[in-house]
């Protein structure tokens, strides 16, 4: 597992049965020091080369199972472990073009042991108000290659 939240391994196009590119995927790791239940995850936007994909357009794959943002919001039984990167899957006809792509993804987690005012202020679409290394940044960016 790589130190950066956005992993370089796992970034590729995905194809249908005929071999046509129908989207892309990438992996992220949890920068928090403990695992979380899916309902604790707050999703922001995925931005690739300036194009914004809202949370409703991004499927999370955890332990081999796919979850929509709506499903995750009420799922407090499925646990995302900090050593198991999640795969983000996006539908996009033709996939991403060969070459460099600027990828940005925003997400954060609720903590339950924080004072409520601090919890309420969390916004995955914006940089965190106070940065704690053990929770990581809300917004992560990486430039990566599609072959």
């Amino acid at each position: 597992m790589e130190k950066q939240v956005i992993q370089s391994v796992g970034f590729r196009n995905i194809f249908d049965e005929q071999g046509a590119p129908v989207g892309f995927q990438l992996k992220i790791r949890l920068p928090y020091y403990r695992g979380v239940y899916l309902s604790q995850i707050m999703q922001g936007n995925l931005v690739v080369d300036g194009q914004v994909y809202k949370k409703e357009q991004v499927i999370w794959r955890i332990n081999g199972e796919d979850y929509t943002a709506e499903e995750m919001a009420s799922d407090w039984n499925t646990h995302w472990h900090p050593l198991e990167p999640a795969t983000l899957i996006v539908k996009k006809d033709g996939g991403l073009s060969q070459g460099f792509h600027d990828v940005e993804y925003g997400f954060c987690c609720s903590h339950s042991y924080f004072p409520p005012e601090l919890e309420a202020a969390a916004d995955p679409t914006k940089p965190e108000l106070i940065f704690f290394p053990e929770f990581g940044h809300n917004i992560n960016r990486r430039r990566m290659l599609i072959v």
């Binding site: 309902s39 604790q40 407090w76």
Partner: peptide, 13 residues
């Protein structure tokens, strides 16, 4: 471990 009763945003467990 944590008793995460604030695990849902819309209600307490």
């Amino acid at each position: 471990h944590w008793v995460d009763s604030h695990v849902l945003k819309f209600r307490e467990l």
